[in-house]
Structure formats: structure tokens, C-alpha cells
Amino acid sequence: MTRISGNMAGALTIGIITAVYLYEAFKLPFGSAAAPGMGFMPVLTGMSVILLCLMLLAKELLFSQAPTSSSVQERDLWEEEEGGESSGYRKPLMLIIILLLYPLALTYLGFIISSILLLYTSLRIMEYRNWLICLAVAVLTAVVANIVFSHWLGIYFPKGILG
């Protein structure tokens, strides 16, 4: 009996959730490329995710190698592996929680501060270099995004405590 890999299970789960998302997105007016409606981006995003899920499933089905008995080891998905890399759900779960808190922070703290906090904590969770480089990347990204959107595109974000 074949076992479903973690990639296949993840792709199937995300695909099912995205199918529900697309069902709701198709209820919105789509519009056209010249005059997009409210459903334009949600439908394109959902279709992109479905395509990526299908590509991952195809890769797993067509190009995956059967694991050997010596390479298959049971391990706790919540514990850290040797070398500090996570083998399970801890980091993705922390990132999901941070992303869910971001809209609340955006309302109260404003775009720049909440984006810096989001980017910095995300980079630290994913263990990207040291804290100083993470902070520099977060500040630079948030400031450049604010300049691009507010000055060039005329889209203004909440200023929060800075305003």
C-alpha cells in the first residue's frame, strides 16, 4: 500500500480549501483586464494556487522516488531537528498567527510599523541571517513599499500612531 507524502497531503488540502475559496470568488463580478471587477484578483489568485497544487501533485506522482527503509524514520513533527531546522508545524503555525494579527496591527499601528514588525518577525522565525540584517531588510522593504504605493501610485495606507 502506498503512503501519501506530506507534499501530496498538503497540496490536496490547500487545493480543497482553494476550491471553496474559488466557489465564493466566482460570485463576485469579474470584469475584464481593462476594467477589473471585485472578483478579478481573487479568481486569478485562486486559479494560480490551484495550478501550483496540481504542479506539486504531478511532481510527486511522476518524479518522486520511493523511500528506502533506512531513510524512513518516524519523528515528532513539533520538535526541532539537529542543526536547528524545524521538521514540523511550529514555524508555519507561527507565521500564520503573525499574518492573522497583521490586519489588527495595521489598523492601530499603521502600515510602516506593522509591516516592519511582520517582516522582522517572519525573517527571524525563518532564521534568515542575524537580527540586524532582518531589521534592515524589514525597514527597507516597508519604507520602499510605502513610497511606491503612496507617492507613485497614490494609494494611501493607514498611518496609525505615526499620523
Rank of each mutant, 00 (worst) to 15 (best):
E74P: 09
R75Y: 10
R75P: 03
R75K: 12
R75E: 10
L77R: 05
E80K: 11
E80H: 07
E81S: 15
G83T: 08
G83E: 09
G84E: 15
G84L: 15
G84V: 15
E85Q: 14
S86R: 04
S87V: 07
G88C: 11
G88P: 08
R90S: 10
K91S: 08
P92K: 11
L93V: 14
M94W: 04
M94H: 03
L95A: 08
I97H: 01
I98W: 09
L100Y: 00
L104G: 12
L104C: 09
L104I: 10
A105W: 01
A105K: 00
L106Q: 00
L106H: 00
T107F: 04
Y108N: 03
L109F: 11
L109C: 09
G110V: 06
F111Y: 13
I112V: 14
I112F: 06
I113H: 02
S114Q: 02
S115G: 13
I116R: 07
I116D: 05
L117C: 04
L118A: 05
Y120M: 14
Y120D: 06
Y120Q: 08
T121G: 00
S122T: 12
S122R: 05
L123Y: 05
R124Q: 12
E127H: 12
R129C: 08
R129L: 10
W131V: 14
I133F: 09
I133L: 13
L135I: 12
A136L: 10
V137A: 11
A138P: 08
L140H: 04
A142M: 10
A142T: 08
V143L: 14
A145D: 02
I147P: 12
V148H: 03
V148C: 07
F149D: 00
S150Y: 00
S150R: 03
S150L: 01
H151L: 03
W152V: 03
W152L: 09
W152D: 01
L153D: 00
L153K: 01
P158I: 06
